[in-house]
Amino acid sequence: MTTRIPARFAKCVAEGRPALATYTMAGDPDPATGQAILDALPAAGADIIELGMPFSDPMADGPGVQAAGQRALAAGQNMKKTLAMVEAFRRKDDETPIVLMGYYNPIYIFGVDAFLAAAKAAGVDGLIVVDLPPEEDEELCIPALKAGLNFIRLATPTTDDARLPAVLNNTSGFVYYVSMTGITGATIKANAGVGAAVQRIKSHTDLPVVVGFGIKTADDAATFGRESDGVAVGTAICNAVLGSLDNGKATAGTVAAVTTMVAGLASGVKRAKAA
């Protein structure tokens, strides 16, 4: 299977720095602005794009990502539009990997086979589906691998050594290490032991390990980037969108609010270089 993900990690390794994975919600705050944000991410410094598929009941997400999903849904976002966004992006950028991230039900209702075919055709590289643990691999993970998409699994502080092989089995592209037991946007404790956890995972797999949940600033990106192959940032970007809105609507500053935030985070991962 070849997706754009391994090539992008190889590029970051060649530059001697961790990768920056940015999470934005598809269609937030409206379809046109969402597309403009997506299109602007690579130039701002995103190495890997995680594109959120909005869901009414995001059980693993904190208020920042919840609100972004609600804004997108209120503006009429749906799965078809999300896939069309990726297709439009691909006409301009054929190198930056896109990972769709979300929950299983909208995929299940779209139809697993139809979804995988449409995602592959649109130029999606991988999937992160929060509520599909290895115990449910038959549902989507195995069909996704067969369709030529990476299936990126979350490993968490509760995933012990006995369970880790089951979590890593059928994982591809990279491993997403959740820095804490908690929801997106919560605060990482200073002594979170993230570096040791990343090393523990790396002793079981050759895949890159990206750390996410609770990384908000350029300093965080530099700190956690030194201990991993990449950092993922979501809530801070969703909150940047929120901060730019006027009465819930996009303003002239909305795209810039995101690109400024992403450029800052990108400077953080560059600082992690040669640590």
Partner: peptide, 8 residues
């Protein structure tokens, strides 16, 4: 159908 954190 739960997040990995809850699975164990």
């Amino acid at each position: 159908f739960v997040a990995e954190t809850l699975m164990p």
